[in-house]
């Protein structure tokens, strides 16, 4: 038995033991060159086929899965789709604080004097409280360039999550699910509520005094973050 084969068997055995998930790096680091690459490929292929791990409430609470579940739960009912789950992680990967990101975003949008307003809007995006359909393509393109993704990815992530139409009133997830007599049909989710969002909702504090040009850019910021829905274009 080759060393690669032996290490793969050891890794799989440890993974199925039911305890802590073994770290592939501990196995892979024992090899170099083509042997290392072979083991990486084989462990990756094994993990791609591995079944779900059994639920463990303590391990869940201690893992990143817990925070992600909270974010996803929020996202499922949000007018901003999965932005609450996605945007903070993209920002973190870009190694930016929210203040740093907002500063760059305001500059990229050409409204550096309105950083505080941009901050409120961006905060609402991360919280899932700003309807995504109002945010213009210009904002998403600038944001995507800052955090290293594409505007299309952000646009799609921001779409409200609605199940596909259920033909004949049957299960919305029937095409994914194996037949199970316990779940013969699922009602459609509640209809999408009207967001009823107004730009002024985010103006908790008055726009600071400034030159006429600075005051006018506050309106520009509103248009950038809420104007798409009104105008029907980005």
């Amino acid at each position: 038995m080759s060393t690669v084969e032996r290490l793969l068997k050891q890794f799989i055995a440890a993974d199925r033991n039911g305890g802590d998930a073994p770290d592939p790096a501990a196995y892979v680091k024992q090899l170099t060159g083509a042997d290392r690459e072979e083991l990486i490929v084989l462990i990756d292929a094994y993990l791609a086929r591995a079944p779900r791990r059994a639920f463990d409430r303590d391990a869940f609470a201690a893992s990143g899965a817990s925070a992600l579940t909270d974010d996803l739960q929020q996202a499922l009912d949000s007018d901003a789709g999965t932005w609450p789950a996605l945007l903070p992680r993209l920002r973190h990967r870009a190694r930016l604080t929210r203040a740093q990101l907002v500063s760059r975003l305001a500059a990229a949008l050409g409204v550096p004097a309105q950083e505080h307003t941009v901050h409120r809007y961006y905060h609402a995006m991360e919280q899932g409280t700003l309807p995504a359909d109002g945010v213009t393509d210009r904002v998403l393109e600038a944001l995507a360039a800052i955090v290293g993704t594409t505007a299309d990815t952000l646009r799609r992530a921001g779409e409200r999550i609605t199940p596909p139409p259920a033909p004949g009133g049957h299960a919305a997830f029937a095409r994914h699910a194996r037949p199970d007599p316990a779940y013969p049909s699922f009602a459609a989710p509640p209809a999408m509520s009207s967001p009823g969002f107004h730009a002024s909702d985010l103006r908790a504090t008055p726009t600071p005094a400034g030159t006429p040009d600075e005051r006018s850019t506050a309106g520009d910021v509103d248009a950038l973050f809420t104007g798409r829905r009104r105008s029907g274009r980005g």
């Binding site: 791990r53 639920f55 899965a65 992600l68 579940t69 739960q73 499922l76």
Partner: peptide, 11 residues
């Protein structure tokens, strides 16, 4: 959702 996310998280 927690069962689904946790089950795939480590893999």
């Amino acid at each position: 959702l927690g069962v689904l996310v946790f089950g795939h998280w480590e893999n």
